[in-house]
Design a protein around this nucleic acid. Structure first.
Lengths: 245, 245
DNA sequence: TCCGAAAGTTGAACACGTTCAAATCGGAGT
DNA sequence: ACTCCGATTTGAACGTGTTCAACTTTCGGA
């Protein structure tokens, strides 16, 4: 869980006078990490609301004000939590991508691992989605700030698609990673609202949806489905122009 | 805008001792309305965060505590705002449903009117979605509490589908209203995040998506599309069992 | 070795959402 | 007219996220 190489994410230790931007002064980075660690643990233990900034600061052994020196708001700490889980997901996905199984099997495995990683934090995820859904938020999956995280996520599907031999419409192939990312987004929203024990409903949806997607993808190369594919992709192009990754 | 007949919604004036449930004691209802009116106006003027409970109470001429006698939280007032706009949308949709134009034209008109109604509150809608997205929230479109609002919304699409003569798979016809509701939900999410001036991107999406949907619906009765339709509906059935309206 | 500026840190203070014990009101029953 | 009793109303108080002016530490260069 914990010890994953920390990719230098965009979050800044310097809210004031952000010009210096040196790699990481040992002291500052240490404090920052202490805060993040405490926040993640407390969020996981007590949820979002119950975990107060004062508690996080106390647990990390710093003052409240100091936490705000490194993070502009409580929400920013949530995004650290998210990054932690995304790294975990990424690590678990690696062997799946390397495996030689079919497109559908690997897609299902990727989605299931995502659910698995988040499962212990279902309650927290509800709050998280509330924060991520508001447009201005840096945690929003559509925001400028999360471009990196978005690319990281789509890169998974890029590798999946690139390494699959399933025949499909070439235009679709080019766009499939983004479509899968969107599908995953929808799945997450569904999962968060899924109150069945262990979110078993969501798992059932995956079981059904993945073969369906596989079928659709395969069908895309058939002549009769061309208009469906083409027009769908045209819609996607309006929705999400290809230039903007 | 303002003077729409007030359908007796579920919100309660009685947080404490809610058993009596009499129609509406003149006094209480008057206070309640004053608070709602002030809240809606201030939300519209200054947004969600900027509008404080103290300001709402002051504007309505009551004490802060009194506002909490009628509404359990600030969020509850947001749902009043939402209801107001939904009523407005409903009113505008009425003539559209009665019009004899094609399925697609009416669907597009319905969606466009929705955008029109919300357009002045784009910023506010961002916050609103953040609140609605969290599972426990009574404002969540999937929550128990908003069953009524959900039914009201789907009823629009029910009437649209029932009064359309477009040929389509009968199974699909039975489920189409819910699918359209889901599509509308997606559109709203997209619109909220659409930063193009006047949200013109969203309008373009409607222009493209509606004919596409019309095409898909029409195609559903063709033999070659049967598996696509059937399996899609099976997925929907898992996702959202028909029994649970 | 010392200085000064930058980085880091502090805790009190502020504004806000929310709670609650107490005060007030209004009308039904006598 | 009087008395209850529930419905309504109040405002002070609490806990929270956030800000900020002041303080301390660090460290490169004279």
């Amino acid at each position: 869980m914990g010890s994953v190489t920390h990719t230098d994410n965009g979050s800044s230790p310097a809210a004031p006078a952000a010009r210096g931007r040196a790699a990481d002064t040992s002291r500052g980075e240490q404090t920052r990490q202490a805060i993040v660690t405490s926040a993640i643990r407390l969020f996981g233990e007590a949820g979002y609301e119950k975990t107060t900034m004062r508690a996080i600061a106390a647990d990390a052994g710093v003052s409240v004000g100091n936490a705000y020196y490194y993070f502009p708001a409580k929400e920013a700490l949530v995004s650290e939590f998210y990054l932690e889980l995304q790294r975990e997901h990424l690590a678990r996905v690696e062997p799946i991508l390397s495996s030689g199984t079919s497109f559908g099997d690997r897609l299902a495995a990727i989605l299931r691992e995502g659910i698995e990683v988040w499962a212990p934090h279902h309650a927290f995820a509800g709050r998280f989605i509330g924060i991520a859904a508001v447009p201005g938020s840096p945690v929003s999956p559509f925001s400028e700030e999360s471009t990196r995280a978005r690319e990281l996520a789509t890169s998974i599907f890029h590798r999946l698609v690139d390494s699959t031999e399933t025949k499909m419409d070439p235009q679709l192939r080019a766009r499939l990673p983004q479509l899968l990312w969107l599908a995953q987004l929808g799945l997450v929203v569904y999962w968060v609202h899924d109150t069945t024990p262990g979110q078993r409903r969501t798992r059932a949806v995956v079981d059904l949806a993945v073969p369906y997607l596989e079928y659709l993808v395969g069908a895309s190369r058939m002549k009769i489905f061309k208009p469906l594919t083409t027009r769908g992709l045209a819609l996607l192009e309006t929705l999400w122009p290809h230039a903007a990754r």
